[in-house]
């Protein structure tokens, strides 16, 4: 038991500080992906519910591709694809250097497009739940399209989309584990290194397991607070 506590201590012998930095990477990657994915997903949803057929087609192609590919495959395609593409481009313009794509950026991009393709579906069904009269009311009092969107539709949209989006946040948090395969030092990679060095695989992977569980519980608490905040302004029916 003391032996295990020693393994988790912060210091030269323990792996506590390494694992803590892994938690930091996981959380910051998920937090950095969230706004990017939300904004992209919102615009894709706008495209998919537009009256313009070409916009709808473009949005549907986007979701079909990124919901159909395994997340790991998307990650590899972006990470290796960008690397090879950039190298080809540099050779093409006559520069020959070895380049490394930032794996944090590649992870953020890959997780972001996957997140946004799912989020667009959530936003789309929320859009459909808002009656037309809300837009017409907005126009009738002289609000522009943008203002109607921002002041009338968005506040209702967010409340409707919140349960779906909080589910997606939990999925995103779990998907960050995949970036350990492109050499980003997240929880799983750091505990994996510790496991290999100390030969205590079960203990360290178990630690990673519990850390992810704690993150999920923590997110659950925050999400339920946000939901309560959203319900406060709801009409008493």
């Amino acid at each position: 038991m003391e032996n295990f506590l020693g393994l988790l201590s912060f210091g030269a012998e323990g792996w506590g500080d390494e694992i803590a930095s892994g938690v930091g990477v996981t959380v910051s990657l998920a937090l950095a992906t969230l706004p990017f994915g939300l904004v992209l997903g919102f615009f894709v949803a706008l495209a998919k519910q537009s009256e313009e057929p070409s916009l709808r087609l473009a949005g549907n192609i986007y979701t079909t591709i990124f919901r159909g590919l395994p997340e790991l495959m998307t990650l590899f395609l972006i990470y290796f694809g960008a690397q090879i593409g950039l190298r080809q481009f540099l050779i093409f313009i006559g520069v020959e250097t070895a380049i490394e794509i930032n794996s944090f950026l590649a992870g953020m991009l890959a997780l972001g497009v996957v997140f946004s393709s799912y989020a667009s579906e959530v936003f789309l069904s929320a859009f459909r739940a808002i009656p037309r009269g809300q837009y017409e009311g907005g126009y009738a009092v002289g609000l522009s399209y943008g203002l109607t969107m921002r002041k009338v539709v968005m506040p209702q949209l967010i409340r409707l989309a919140l349960p779906g989006l909080s589910n997606l946040w939990l999925v995103l948090l779990k998907d960050t584990a995949l970036v350990s395969t492109i050499a980003l030092s997240d929880i799983l990679r750091q505990t994996g290194i510790a496991a290999r060095v100390t030969k205590q695989a079960f203990f360290f992977y178990g630690t990673a397991f519990i850390l992810y569980l704690l993150l999920a519980i923590l997110s659950g608490l925050v999400i339920s607070r946000i939901e309560r905040f959203g319900q406060k302004s709801e009409l008493a029916r």
């Binding site: 779990k174 995949l178 799983l188 496991a195 695989a201 079960f202 992977y205 569980l213 999920a216």
Partner: peptide, 15 residues
């Protein structure tokens, strides 16, 4: 609540 990858690692390497 936990990533599938972590579960796979726990079973394959951990056990």
């Amino acid at each position: 609540g936990t990533p599938l990858l972590a579960q796979v690692f726990l079973i394959y390497y951990g056990l």
